[in-house]
């Protein structure tokens, strides 16, 4: 086992850091099971930020899409959101709310980061639902709320999930820099190389990368499970490969 690690050079050391505990230069334990609290904090932060973003952005996007109002707002938030660097956002919260707990500050910053893709995709998804289907539903006497829940939401699901995936991966990636402001996530070994060593830096990077890819693949599986059959049938294999990474053809048109 350790011979294989040695053959991989520094990557081998990094993989061994992921699985086995060791003492660092200061004599405190790092690596192996010591990574679990970092992972837990990372997941907690991601879940908190995503939950907050979903609660705000999803209903707002659905309602705005349903009414067709404020399209400028719904579209331009994601353009503005792209331009604001995540680091600056986190630093702003820390600088302007020095007394509130770091975890709360970072959660708020990450949630702000996660809102634009969800909002824009929910809006565009609902706007692009088949108007005939909506008219038919209205003709059958469904109320506005029923139309959103039973017609527009299911038909917009692929796009909505595209937005959720983009945001989740983004939040997982950005949570890596949270240790710079005192929230000890998996990014801690990256920014505190003196404590964890180089194998810790690389090892934690591997964990973060795997986490991001797992989130992408996992959410794609959920997306396939909840997408109505009618929408799946209407697509070819080429399109499916695109949507696996949340890149349906239609989403590109949200570009300015």
């Amino acid at each position: 086992m350790s011979a294989t690690f040695a053959a991989l050079g520094e990557f081998g050391d990094a993989i061994s850091f992921i699985f086995t505990e060791r003492e660092n230069q200061r004599g405190s334990p790092v690596g192996g099971a010591e990574n679990l609290p970092l992972l837990w904090e990372h997941l907690k932060l991601t879940a908190a930020a995503m939950a907050l973003a979903l609660v705000i952005a999803l209903p707002l996007g659905l309602v705005l899409g349903h009414t067709g109002r404020f399209s400028f707002l719904a579209i331009s938030t994601s353009n503005v959101g792209r331009a604001v660097p995540s680091v600056a956002l986190i630093a702003l919260f820390i600088a302007f709310f020095p007394r509130s707990p770091e975890f709360l500050n970072v959660t708020l910053a990450l949630a702000l980061l996660a809102i634009p893709p969800i909002l824009t995709n929910a809006y565009v998804g609902v706007r692009q639902t088949d108007r005939d289907a909506v008219d038919a539903a209205r003709g059958m006497g469904l109320s506005g709320a029923q139309i959103i829940r039973q017609i527009e939401l299911p038909l917009a699901l692929p796009l909505i999930f595209g937005g959720i995936k983009t945001s989740t991966v983004n939040v997982i990636a950005t949570a890596t820099i949270a240790p710079l402001v005192g929230v000890v996530t998996l990014g801690d070994p990256l920014v505190a190389a003196s404590v964890y060593g180089r194998e810790g830096q690389i090892g934690a990077s591997i964990i973060v990368a795997v986490l991001a890819i797992l989130a992408e693949v996992g959410l794609s599986a959920v997306q396939r499970a909840v997408t109505p059959d009618g929408i799946k049938l209407a697509r070819g294999p080429e399109d499916r490969a695109r949507t696996r990474f949340g890149l349906s053809k239609r989403r590109i048109q949200t570009a300015p």
């Binding site: 050079g9 520094e10 990557f11 991966v169 997982i172 990636a173 950005t174 890596t176 820099i177 990014g187 990256l190 180089r198 830096q201 690389i202 934690a204 990077s205 591997i206 973060v208 990368a209 991001a212 890819i213 992408e216 490969a241 695109r242 696996r244 990474f245 890149l247």
Partner: peptide, 21 residues
């Protein structure tokens, strides 16, 4: 699309350190 998609999904912060060696 799959390969560039994986590169897109990899957090860039992680990639900075994965490229270290």
């Amino acid at each position: 699309t799959q390969i560039t998609g994986i590169l897109y999904t990899l957090p860039s912060v992680a990639l900075f350190f994965l490229l270290l060696p």
